[in-house]
């Protein structure tokens, strides 16, 4: 069985927001290390991988590996019934038929305990083996900045070309009617406090579909920073780390004919 108590429902709400438009159903793989989810979007262009460490929960117990097949739309609805600061407990039996969610809040006049149950399903999804990669370029920047850049450029065109060079990282969009490019220089520092970093072994140029990057940017509510890992001709890794775990996205590049 699984019993996992989170100190705030907000974390799950944000995670669902960051995943639900990419995938509709996914297995939450629970084991003693924590809860993991890996799923590809329907077009097999993007993959999302979430990890919640057992240590990130107020209480965590999972006796044996348990895959929970979740319809993310249904879970989103059930989580809408939780207040952000409610204590949230997830429970499932070994048959993994039902996921129960308990929301506890202490208000001024009484303790409120709300219980919800949702049906689980069998999901037969391929798990991909993601090779360990030494990336040629690693860029860390404020997640709000990344959100702004991809949202702005998505107004102009479908794709963005990302160029990492000694100059810094440049995002270029060539739309039919307009184009734009945004350069973030290597030495971008504000009041002595480092906001980001650009590490590069060799120059990288890659092109990606902006609609996915806009989608990934929904994770900005989970972490103040985002890390972009890139090598030529391999999928981009977009990683958001937070106290209780991480969410990572992989996106296949567009390649010239």
């Amino acid at each position: 069985m699984l019993e996992a108590k989170l100190s705030e429902a907000a974390l799950l709400k944000r995670l669902l927001d960051a995943v639900k438009e990419l995938v509709s159903d996914a297995n939450f793989e629970c084991n003693e290390e924590g809860i993991q989810l890996q799923a590809m979007d329907n077009s097999h262009v993007a993959l999302v991988s979430v990890k919640l460490y057992a240590s990130g929960f107020k209480r965590y117990r999972c006796d044996r590996p348990l895959p929970l097949g979740v319809n993310l739309g249904s879970l989103t609805k059930v989580l809408k019934c939780a207040k952000d600061d409610d204590i949230c407990t997830l429970k499932a039996g070994d048959d993994a038929d039902i996921l129960s969610l308990t929301y506890e809040a202490k208000s001024a006049y009484a303790d409120r305990i709300a219980e919800y149950e949702m049906k689980l399903m069998d999901i037969d999804a391929d798990q991909l083996g993601i090779p360990d990669t030494d990336y040629d370029a690693s860029v860390t920047m404020p997640s709000s900045e990344f959100l702004r850049i991809v949202r702005d450029l998505s107004l102009l065109g479908e794709s963005v070309r990302i160029e990492v060079s000694k100059e810094g990282i440049r995002f270029v969009s060539d739309g039919e009617a307009a184009n734009g490019n945004i350069l973030i220089k290597q030495n971008a520092e504000a009041s002595g406090k480092k906001k980001g970093s650009i590490e590069m072994n060799s120059a990288v140029t890659l092109t990606f579909s902006l609609k996915y990057l806009v989608n990934f940017s929904k994770s900005s509510s989970l972490s103040k920073k985002v890390q972009l890992m890139m090598s030529n001709d391999v999928p981009l890794l977009v990683s958001y780390a937070f106290n209780q775990g991480h969410i990572r996205y992989y996106l296949a590049p567009k390649i010239g004919d």
Partner: peptide, 14 residues
Amino acid sequence: KMKQKSLMSFFGKK
């Protein structure tokens, strides 16, 4: 023209 690659061409099934 750019062609969108599939992730399956980079990552193998487990």
